[in-house]
Design a protein around this nucleic acid. Sequence first.
DNA 1: ACCTGAACACCGTTCAAGT
DNA 2: ACCTGAACACCGTTCAAGT
Lengths: 212, 212
Amino acid sequence: VAAEEMLEESGFEALSLRDAARRAGVSHAAPYRHFPAKVDLLFALAGRGFAALDSEMARAATLSADPIAQLAEAGLAYVRLAVWHPRRTQLMFGGILDMQEAPSGVRDVAQSSFQGLVRIIEAGQRSGAFHHGDSLEVALMAWSLVHGAAMLILGGQFKYAGQISEDDLRGVMRAIHRTLMLGIVRDDCRDDLARALGSPEGNLAGGPEKCD
Amino acid sequence: VAAEEMLEESGFEALSLRDAARRAGVSHAAPYRHFPAKVDLLFALAGRGFAALDSEMARAATLSADPIAQLAEAGLAYVRLAVWHPRRTQLMFGGILDMQEAPSGVRDVAQSSFQGLVRIIEAGQRSGAFHHGDSLEVALMAWSLVHGAAMLILGGQFKYAGQISEDDLRGVMRAIHRTLMLGIVRDDCRDDLARALGSPEGNLAGGPEKCD
DNA sequence: ACCTGAACACCGTTCAAGT
DNA sequence: ACCTGAACACCGTTCAAGT
């Protein structure tokens, strides 16, 4: 009875178990043989989303030997998935569902997709591309930046009203990638600031500048 | 009849106009004298959230003369507001409401809060602290990173189960600030990568490294 | 095992009627 | 102007009953 899910995907997510049953041609009580409650149907849909994310993260890690390129690919895949499945993404992250109490299966696959990101970060740290801070923290930063951009694009807060074009998407991803890699501070001010913030590599060179 | 809103705040957001009327001691039809539809009540609540954000952004800009410190303060205020009002925040950004068709008043104040961020970025570019890319793009990057972290914290994806402590929050903000300012790439690889990405300042110094 | 149909307690919304 | 009470068309969920 996976047909029901497909129908939901192709239409709306926040609405109507009864309606889904109707257009599946069964009685309004039939879904309860497959899902104990509506929330379980929604968890199943969200689970599909996390599974898609998981496989995209794994794919991104194979497309190149360069962790920086892997990370760029993972970010692009993340946002693309969000743009292609906006309702499902908002189900996954919009707070309609409390993922804390999701079935362990979908929690596991969600966890696994994040682990895919962590693995890319750790490969980058080993290769010397990324600095050697806590890999989990670095991964959370990368996730936050990409996730935030995805959510804001979905909310229409990213200037692109309605649908975003593939070209615009590429432009945004370029900006995200540069920001995540290099930050927004001018090079002249880096050493100053790195000392003040306690750079994880203990960088000590460079003279004072007028950067406050 | 702002009392209704306060009751909603102190409990749940995703639920029941009828119930709100009940505990306000009026009939279930009374709210319709004040809000044409439930969605308008929700827009009003979201509007309060954006107004709070707007004033926090303005406040952050006055607490220091240093744009970098202003940005850190703005980010902290953003996440703190999200953690203190999780339901309202998910109303504002969770996709329940389509902000594209919000009343112009709440759209304006939302726009104004973003403008507050843009002003901080532009001050930082003038002072030489931030690189001279498109200020709107830089602002969107800062917003995305902080917004993404806030949403993931709310969703419980940020290791901190349930409520996050003020100390943990400070730790997260520190990581966010360092990432946004400096990026995650090792210093040895910066010039290489900056050339590959086309740094907005046209940085040309530095020799090749093994940073594929 | 899987589905049905009626029923229950809720919604959001409308509307004639009251003051 | 503001509120009420009844009514309408929907929900999610339960349950006895069918096959």
